[in-house]
Computed example of a mutant assay.
Amino acid sequence: MSVSKSLRAPTPADILARKGGDPLVVLTAYTTPIARLVDPHCDIVLVGDSLGMVVHGMDSTLGVTMEMMILHGQAAARGTKSAMLVIDMPFGSYEESPEQAFANAAEVMRQTGCAAVKLEGGQHMADTIRFLTARGVPVMAHVGLTPQAINTLGGYKVQGRDADAARVLEDARAVAAAGAFSVVLEKVTAPLATEITRAIAIPTIGIGASVDCDGQVLVVDDMLGLFTEFKPKFAKRYAELGDHASDAIARYAAEVRARTFPAPEHVYGLETSGAPKP
């Protein structure tokens, strides 16, 4: 599919200006090859701390470190040209104080060249977001289900039902007022996500939220069928590459055992590079 897109990567200000306009397309990427694949089609490439689970086999995102985010951020940066690169701040790297958050966010930006960082939390993180943005660190916020807080949220539960709705709405309002240029709404009921999108002046990016959000994000390994440990309801499979890869690996193993690979066309004869071939 051909894509008509500016070669200049959008800035946080450009993303903010997209509020209410054409939907923002966001996908994760953790490696250079995947970043090269998603970059022409996306407005934002997100190096999410979900890499802990889908790349490193962790049970949650809580074990992800700054070093991991920087390493994968550098890899994704090499493959990102026309989308904006955003990198997650890992658990424990920003919650202690605004000063801690700034030091670590500045290090991530310095080492990866990303345009912005993403951090989780609503009202309680508003002062930190305000501190960062005042010092030149653009922030994408993240409210609703915040995976780094699953131990206090009681698991990966849908947010916005019953008494939760008012809290999630106030969280979104707080991060918008603090200066975030966009906010991810994760696993938020559709009616609430629509209400939030209409209530705040910054773009909302849904994942398991409403089609009315200003954009959508998915974990690329989910949508390509590469991560199969579990499948969230919102993770639509656009391909089943995991199945195709498994079939290919099985064929390779069978050919090695049958000694049909490598075939003559895959091996080198005695001829030198400059000598004519028989």
Rank of each mutant, 00 (worst) to 15 (best):
A190S: 12
P10I: 01
E107A: 14
D212N: 07
R167H: 11
T28H: 06
M125T: 14
T65L: 04
D22Q: 15
A253H: 08
H266E: 15
M53D: 10
V267G: 09
D22G: 10
L185W: 05
P232E: 08
T28Q: 05
R173H: 03
M1A: 15
F131K: 09
G206I: 04
S2E: 15
A105D: 10
V108D: 04
H41S: 12
A209W: 04
V183C: 04
T65W: 05
V158L: 13
S82Q: 15
T194Y: 03
A83G: 08
Q159W: 07
I196C: 02
V217C: 09
M223N: 11
R78E: 12
A83L: 09
D162S: 15
A9M: 01
H72L: 02
N151V: 12
H72R: 09
A17N: 11
R78L: 11
A149D: 13
G269F: 04
M223V: 14
G113I: 07
P203Y: 05
G160T: 03
V117I: 15
L241W: 09
L46A: 06
T80R: 00
A105L: 02
A199I: 08
E186T: 03
Q111T: 05
G20A: 04
P147H: 06
A9K: 03
T197A: 03
V217D: 03
Q159H: 08
S273Q: 12
L185K: 05
L51S: 01
R78T: 04
M109H: 00
R198P: 07
I202S: 05
L119P: 10
